[in-house]
């Protein structure tokens, strides 16, 4: 299948998710369950996407583990996104030279 078709579907769905409520919605979400579900979904999605994919993200488990460990510590300390992302990559690169 052509990549353009995938991109069209991907962009179309993403746009409608934003545009439909932004254009039409004028009330608040009142259902506590639905509100809570929307609150937890971003974190659950990011976690499911990251684990276990991060452990093979460099193509090598050892360098991936080195990057993950450094990123995890910095993320736990609340460092900015860019710092965590760059330090994780740098740690994976460094580990690659050492192995």
């Amino acid at each position: 299948m052509s990549i353009a078709v995938y991109v069209f579907v991907m962009a179309g769905v993403t746009y409608l998710i934003r545009a439909v409520p932004f254009t039409l919605f004028r009330k608040k979400v009142t259902s506590p369950f639905f509100r809570s579900l929307l609150h937890y979904i971003p974190y659950a999605v990011l976690s499911a996407m990251t684990i276990p994919a991060i452990f093979t993200s460099t193509g090598n488990v050892l360098t991936s583990l080195a990057g993950t460990a450094v990123a995890l510590v910095l993320a736990y300390l609340g460092k900015p996104l860019i710092v965590v992302a760059l330090a994780g990559s740098a740690a994976a690169l460094l580990a690659g030279f050492l192995i």
């Binding site: 990251t50 090598n60 995890l72 736990y76 990559s89 994976a92 690169l93």
Partner: peptide, 24 residues
């Protein structure tokens, strides 16, 4: 190759930085 594969982890590290602090 070594550098580009090490950068493959970058986005996942950013995801960690988004969900770890609130999880704490």
């Amino acid at each position: 190759e070594m550098v580009s594969s090490a950068m493959g982890i970058m986005l996942y590290c950013m995801f960690l930085a988004i969900f770890v602090p609130p999880a704490r």
